[in-house]
Each structure stands twice: as C-alpha cells, then as structure tokens.
C-alpha cells in the first residue's frame, strides 16, 4: 500500500485524483461567480459567497481543497523533478513527435496557474478574510453580508487587471484541456468507445470553464 505514495504510478494516481477534485471545484466556483453577470445586482453572489465562507461543511471542504491544491502541486513538482533527472542530457533537435499540443506544456501552464492562484487569492480571499477590507451590506431580509461582489466589480473595472486575468485564465484552460482526459487515462480509464467521449468532454469542459471564467471580468469591464 505504501507504494501508492512513492511509486511513479502511485504519485500519478494522487495527481489525478487531486486534479479531478479540483476540476469539480472549478465548476462550483464558476457557478457562483457567474451569478455576477447573470443577475443584475450582487446579492445572489454575496449570499452564496458568504454561505461558502461560513458553512461548517464547506469550511472542512476548504481545508480539503487547499490540501488538494497542495497535493497536486507538490506531487507535480516531485514528478517533474524526476522527469528532469531522467534526461540529464537533452536533444539538440527539439522533439517533433506528434503529440497533443497542450500536453507538452503542462509544466508551463501549471506555473501560470500558480501565479494566478497567488494573485487571485490575494485579490479576493485574503482581502476578505484577513484584511477586512471588504464592506458590508444588509439585504431586505435584514441579514448582513460582506459585499464581495462590489469588490469584484471594482477590480474588474481596471483594464490591466482584466487583461492579466484573461491571459492567466487562458493558461488554466490549456492545463485543463490535457488535464481532464489525462486524469482518466492515469486512473486506467481508457476504452475504445468511451475515451473519445472523455476527450470530447475534456475539450468541452476546458472551453466552457475557461470562457465562463473569462466572461466575468470581460463582461464586468464592458457592461457593468
């Protein structure tokens, strides 16, 4: 059993399970964020965000989520170091083999996502949770919420922030494009008829999630 943490295939299993979990999280996150542009005001968003921030179950999940990120990143780094060590002397002529384009750049896109994560966490999560720099708002039912929505709207009215977000989100999209189907392959799910479906779903997922996320700052910048 211990080999599941130390062997190459074991480490990859960790990567893929964490990855799949993060894929699910991204959908949930998108579902909440998209309310910002689906609804006229930010009430739904603020209510959902607060629910996410206070519900005890979600709080546990938050820890798991961070664990997931950490696991995915740490194992990714460990595997990457192993990969680099496996070819101490490289080729003069760059590899020309026919492979899926995005799969070659998983490390690069992972670094982009890390930058994004730091920026993003600081922008919203840290500000909200630790700096207390988010205003409060009270809705008709008398409940008071952090007006996170207002913060988002404010940030995404700044042109360069939008540009940076869009660029970094594209990196995420590329990562997901390969990551989605790769996770299934690692889990041993490869089938003559199902694998093409998984691959299509992966493309669909990465396109939908990326456009979904990108649409938020862009929409806010131009239309709110």
């Amino acid at each position: 059993m211990s080999n599941i943490f130390t062997s190459s295939i074991g480490k990859k299993l960790m990567m893929s399970l964490a990855g799949l979990f993060l894929l699910a999280f991204l959908l949930l996150h998108l579902a909440i964020n998209i309310t910002l542009i689906l609804y006229k005001d930010t009430e739904t968003f603020n209510r959902a965000a607060t629910f996410m921030g206070t519900n005890p179950v979600i709080k546990v999940m938050e820890v798991i989520l961070f664990g997931g990120f950490l696991l995915h990143m740490v194992y990714g780094a460990v595997l990457q170091v192993g990969n680099l060590m496996a070819r101490p002397k490289g080729y003069k002529k760059a590899n020309y083999s026919q492979t899926s384009f995005f799969s070659k750049y998983m490390l690069h896109t992972a670094l982009i996502i890390t930058i994004f994560l730091v920026l993003h966490l600081f922008d919203f999560w840290v500000k909200n949770k630790f700096l207390g720099s988010v205003h409060e708002i009270t809705y008709a039912d008398g409940e008071t919420y952090h007006n996170l929505g207002a913060l988002v709207l404010e940030r995404f009215k700044i042109g360069w922030v939008v540009v940076v977000y869009v660029v970094l989100l594209l990196g995420l999209g590329f990562h997901l494009h390969h990551g989605f189907q790769s996770a299934f392959q690692t889990l041993g799910i490869n089938h003559k008829s199902y694998t093409p479906v998984i691959k299509t779903l992966g493309v669909l997922y990465s396109v939908v999630v990326t456009t979904g996320y990108i649409s938020i700052p862009v929409y806010i910048y131009f239309f709110k």
Partner: peptide
C-alpha cells in the same frame, strides 16, 4: 526512468504502434 504525463509521444513513435490503452491497463 521518468514519469508518464500522458502526452502520447510514445504511441506516436512506437514502430509497432502500441497504444496508450495498454498504459491505462497497466495502471
């Protein structure tokens, strides 16, 4: 040896065109 990242270069270059599905089976 390094770790598999499912890029499929092996399958593309294998002279006997052995498929990635065998890697999934091994997993």
């Amino acid at each position: 040896f390094g770790n598999c990242t499912n890029t499929g270069a092996c399958e593309a270059e294998c002279p006997k065109e052995i498929s990635l599905s065998h890697i999934a089976r091994m997993n």
